[in-house]
């Protein structure tokens, strides 16, 4: 049961068409946001995706939640192919999978009360017949996420809450339908550092209590290491390394993973830190470079890297990396 294949993604790809300014005719060019990504999330585990901004991790989350249509590929939830689910089927499925958003300021409608926000999913799904039951459930959820369940709280609006409190409201709303699979898109990246730990601790506590499975997106390696069971590193739409959390941090195989780990500032200042970090940003590839996408920035790159795309290969029981020079 523990190792059941819970959520699977198979060759998932998303290209966004872009038109140049003033271009009306001709073929659009495409941004390869997510390119041929494969992974399996296991029940009760936390699957982390790490990468820089623009590497396609948010697009991946949006595709999982059916907010974006994949260009090709398949998604399986509990063995069932959900890629082509229509609106009605998807609505039923959304009871089991919910999303926690990155931006606790923008993801809650400032016009609505906390009660309305938390109760929105149960209203959309017509769970309760009367408002009293609904109110009790909302209060229960607020307590679950560590907020007050007073009437005063229920009538507050998001603008009256702090960032951490808002994110707790977001989590309460995501869990009210009893979802088991939570897609969390950088849930703490916009919060103050002191509050992050609280929210992460809350999410981990809820995971234990409700046996949740997380798909956790972050750009911080330290965060991923602390809470994820398995970590995938994405670069420019491709997964470059996938492994168990301990293995990937202690023995990174891919040079990009090494870069991300080196980029974590040490708590005790080190005069050598930052000296050998390579430069450059994740490019939006409209025309991906031939071969390995990382080769323009890579120190190990040679002729092979420029011509041949490396495949994800299992190097050490379940530690996959896509590099020619491991």
């Amino acid at each position: 049961m523990e190792n059941e294949q819970y959520f699977e993604v198979d060759h998932l790809t998303k290209f966004f068409p872009v038109k140049k300014r003033g271009q009306f005719f001709g073929k659009p060019i495409y941004v390869h946001a997510v390119d041929d990504v494969q992974f399996t999330v296991r029940k009760g585990k936390t699957y982390g995706v790490v990468g820089e901004s623009g590497c396609g991790k948010t697009t991946l989350a949006r595709m999982i939640m059916h907010l974006e249509k994949p260009t090709s590929g398949r998604m399986l939830f509990k063995g069932q192919d959900i890629t082509l689910f229509n609106g009605k089927q998807m609505k039923a499925l959304r009871r089991q999978m919910q999303m926690v958003f990155q931006d606790p300021f923008g993801s809650l409608n400032p016009v609505r009360t906390i009660r309305n926000i938390v109760a929105e999913p149960v209203r959309v799904h017509h769970i309760f017949q009367n408002r009293q039951d609904e109110k009790i459930k909302v209060q229960e959820m607020l307590e679950t996420v560590g907020l007050s369940s007073s009437d005063e709280m229920l009538e507050k609006r998001p603008g009256q809450l702090s960032g951490g409190e808002r994110q707790r409201v977001g989590i309460a709303s995501a869990l009210i339908l009893g979802a088991e699979f939570i897609v969390a898109d950088e849930p703490v990246s916009m919060l103050d550092a002191s509050i992050r730990a609280d929210i992460i601790a809350l999410m981990m506590k809820l995971k234990e209590e409700k046996n949740l499975t997380y798909f956790f997106i972050t750009h911080e390696f330290g965060m991923a290491r602390a809470i994820c069971d398995r970590i995938a590193v994405m670069y420019a739409g491709k997964m470059v390394e996938v492994a168990d959390a301990a293995s990937i941090v202690d023995h990174p195989l891919h040079p990009y993973t090494q870069l991300l780990i080196d980029a974590i500032p040490p708590l005790i200042p080190d005069p050598n830190w930052g000296k050998n970090i390579s430069e450059g940003e994740v490019p939006y590839f409209t025309v991906p470079p031939p071969g390995c996408r990382y080769h323009p920035r890579c120190s190990r790159a040679d002729e092979l890297c420029k011509s041949e795309i490396p495949e994800l290969v299992d190097y050490r029981d379940g530690h996959f990396a896509a590099c020619h020079h491991v």
């Binding site: 939640m65 907010l67 998807m90 609505k91 959304r94 009871r95 919910q98 999303m99 958003f101 990155q102 931006d103 923008g106 993801s107 809650l108 409608n109 016009v111 609505r112 309305n116 929105e120 999913p121 959309v124 799904h125 977001g170 709303s173």
Partner: peptide, 23 residues
């Protein structure tokens, strides 16, 4: 994002327009 969130909950167009756009 709250429109997106409503979609991810499974809300229909009418629900979104009435609750999130019209106000």
């Amino acid at each position: 994002t709250y429109v997106e969130r409503a979609k991810s909950i499974g809300a229909g167009n009418f629900h979104i327009i009435w609750n999130h756009i019209l106000p």
